[in-house]
Each structure stands twice: as structure tokens, then as C-alpha cells.
Design a protein around this nucleic acid. Structure first.
Lengths: 210, 210
DNA sequence: CAACTGATTTTCGTAAACGAAAAAATTTTT
DNA sequence: AAAAATTTTTTCGTTTACGAAAATCAGTTG
């Protein structure tokens, strides 16, 4: 999806959102401070909005802009999703240091990626193997003792029930410090600008409905 | 922050992002397929971008658009954040049915809201008390047996280690079905369009540095 | 079915974004 | 420090977004 296509999808979405909210052009015009004619032309793809105009109408429609960016026409359109992943049935894979169980793999275009991680290493990986990715990450310790390493901070010890929230653009790594492996729940944000998200194959989670 | 101010902040952000990536106008121009002059004028606030142009340069800079929308100038500018919340020190409050422990309250403009929840009720709340909010939610069962209710699906039983990912625009509620309370980790998305996020007062979590 | 009402689309003048190329500013080389 | 090379800003003609008002369309009523 290139930018022009995205703008078109956005514009079409405006109409369905406005109508599903039961709004007239005039109402939306007053709420957004964008003229009726402009909204009409945008909805009918006769005109592309300026950035400012796009923001105005998006806000007026109380659109969660992330959802709008993620993919016009998904959750707002009445198609709500739900996936259950059973404890033993997460998609698992191993790196040299951690074992990952990926949950909710059935939902393709989602914003959060939930991982149940088993930390097997007892010393920090070499810096080259530290994780780094866009967005933010939340880590919650479920078992064992975790030593959390990150670039700009000194290592922190986290016990069961402790958590850490950080910008994952900062390199980070985990070490198990207690008896045996540590187990954590890690939630990463996965939004990339526009790119389709990769769909996991070999998925074994339970998918409901739709 | 109104739309014009947001566009201005976005535009200023372009320059710092481009420079921190060590890119020239020409490089960014080729990558984004937006002319040099246009980028220059936008960076210097002599011109406001069209929606399409804004998308083009954002993508060319590999900007996570959510971060860009969230607040220009935050994480990309070398200011990475990290907050640790200790097990007993989460900000807690109770509803009639659940007890919430809010983690990472110190980070104000974040995307995920992590909650440790204790489910005390053994029957479903009345529909009026079910939760509903924008975005998506991930729930992971840590203790007990959870019955998960949601509008468009039949109730599901989740045991320890099971998880559920769903659109939280769908009304939902929890019930404890095992012996005693169930305990879950719930991550909600909190992005609203542009509005500043409320900052929790009475915060007791451990904040590290800037 | 004509007259009215409310909603949407089209028309048109004005203002503004856009890109190519020239001009200016900055950095590097000799 | 002049010359050359690179990078940024400005200029200017063309294209396009924008809003006010007119025109069209879609229901409703007398």
C-alpha cells in the first residue's frame, strides 16, 4: 500500500465512519471546522486532504488515530476480534538465550505482540545479541529473578511481580539470576509505518469466530 | 494542542529526525519521493504538508507513525525512558468487582497501560458495568480460573498460562471461577487521538532518570 | 405532484502546496 | 583564503486544496 492508496483508504473510511455515527456533513463540518464541500470532495476522492484537514476530521470523528493508521475499516466497522491462546499451545521458538511463546498469533494486524519468555542464560549475551526494535515494551516477571540490562541504565534486578516499561529503541537484554530459568511476560508494540505485519505460520492457537 | 500546532510540531520533528539520521535533504527527497524544496519549506514552517506528503516523509524516515502521532520529539530524540514498578508498589484502586494495580504510572505519554488485576467477583457484573474502551487489550491469567465474557462471543474459561487478545471496543467483563480470586495481567492500549494523557497522582512507582 | 425541507455535490475564485531551477549559504578541498 | 563541492533556501510557474454559495438530489408534507 503506497501513500496515495493509503490516503484513498483513509478518505473512504471517513464516509463509513461518519455515516455509522449518524452524522451529516454539516455536523461533521462544525465539529471538525472543515467546510462541508471539502469533506464531501474528500469522501468522494475528488480531492486529497491536507495533513491538517485529515487530522481535523479524524479528531472530530473521535477516531483512534492508531486504528485509522493501522488499517482503515477494521475494528470500527463492527468487526471485533478475539483470540484465545492456551498455555501449552503458544507458538514457541528458541534463541541462544531465551525461549519464546508467542500468543495471539491468529490475529494478524494487531498492535501488541504478547510473548511468554523463558530466560535460560545466566550471564548477559554479547551486545550484538541484545534486542532492539521500534516502539515500547512492557516486561512483567512471573517466575524467578530477572536481571534487566539496557543501554542507558545500569542493570536492574526484578523479582516476581515486578515490572519494567521502557522504550525498546534502546538495546536491552535479560539474564536469569535465581535458581533455574526466569519466566516473564513481555509485550512489544509492533506498529510499523504501513507495512503489513508478517503472519506467523505453523500457528496453533485457538481462533474464535469471524 | 490543536491541529495546526500538531502539524508544526510534526514538521519541526522532521528536521531533527533527518539530522539525527545523518541524512541530507537530497537523500530524504529520494527516499520519500518528495522534492527537496518541499521538505525544506516544511521543515522551516514555510509550508504545511499535504496528508500524502506527510506520510511519505514519515515512512522514508522509518518513523513509527504511532510515536510520531503520540508526540513529536519524544523517544526518537535520544531520550529513552525506563520505569520499574515493584510488586507491592503499584498504584492500586478498587472497583466493585476488581482490584487494579497500575504499573509504570511514572511514564506519562505511553502507549500501553499495564494492569495487574485481581478478580474478586464470582458472578458477572451487570452489563452496564462491563468495560469498554478504544483499542485492543491483552489478558494473561496468572492465578486462578478466569471466565472471560465479551459481547459478541460466548464466555470462555481461561486457566493459568492462557491468554486472550481482543478488540476492547467490544464490551467485556471478568469472573473468577476457581478457589478464591483470579489474578490476571491486562495490557490496554491507551492512545487517544491527540489528547494529552492524564497523569496519575499519588504515584509510588520507581522512576529512573530522564 | 408541486412545494418544501434537509443533505449532498458541484462551481468557481482565492489561497496555498508542490517541484524545477536559480540563488544563497555552508562545508570541504586545494 | 580562494575555489570547488555540497547542502539549504528562495523564486516562480503550475497544480491543487479550500470554502462560500449555487445547484442538484432525496425525502416529506400539504
Amino acid at each position: 500500500m503506497n501513500e496515495a492508496e493509503f490516503v484513498a483508504a483513509f478518505s473512504r473510511e471517513l464516509k463509513s465512519l461518519r455515516l455509522s455515527n449518524g452524522m451529516t456533513l454539516e455536523e461533521l463540518s462544525r465539529a471538525s471546522e472543515v467546510s462541508i464541500s471539502t469533506i464531501s470532495k474528500i469522501e468522494n476522492l475528488q480531492q486529497k486532504p491536507s495533513f491538517e484537514t485529515a487530522l481535523r476530521v479524524a479528531r472530530a470523528l473521535k477516531v483512534n488515530f492508531v486504528q485509522m493508521m493501522e488499517g482503515p475499516g477494521l475494528p470500527q466497522s463492527g468487526m471485533t476480534r478475539r483470540t484465545i491462546t492456551r498455555a501449552g499451545e503458544a507458538d514457541t521458538f528458541r534463541s541462544d538465550y531465551y525461549t519464546y511463546g508467542v500468543h495471539a498469533t491468529e490475529i494478524a494486524r494487531k498492535i501488541m505482540v504478547p510473548l511468554v519468555m523463558r530466560i535460560r542464560n545466566r550471564t548477559p549475551p554479547p551486545l550484538a545479541d541484545w534486542s532492539i526494535h521500534d516502539g515500547e515494551e512492557f516486561v512483567y516477571v512471573m517466575k524467578g529473578v530477572l536481571e534487566f540490562h539496557s543501554e542507558q541504565y545500569s542493570p536492574a534486578i526484578l523479582n516476581v511481580g515486578d515490572s519494567c516499561y521502557f522504550d525498546s529503541t534502546m538495546r536491552h537484554a535479560f539474564v536469569s539470576k535465581g535458581d533455574g530459568d526466569a519466566e516473564i511476560l513481555s509485550i512489544c508494540l509492533s506498529i510499523k509505518p504501513f507495512e503489513e505485519q508478517a503472519r506467523h505460520s505453523g500457528d496453533r492457537s485457538v481462533q474464535d469466530g469471524v
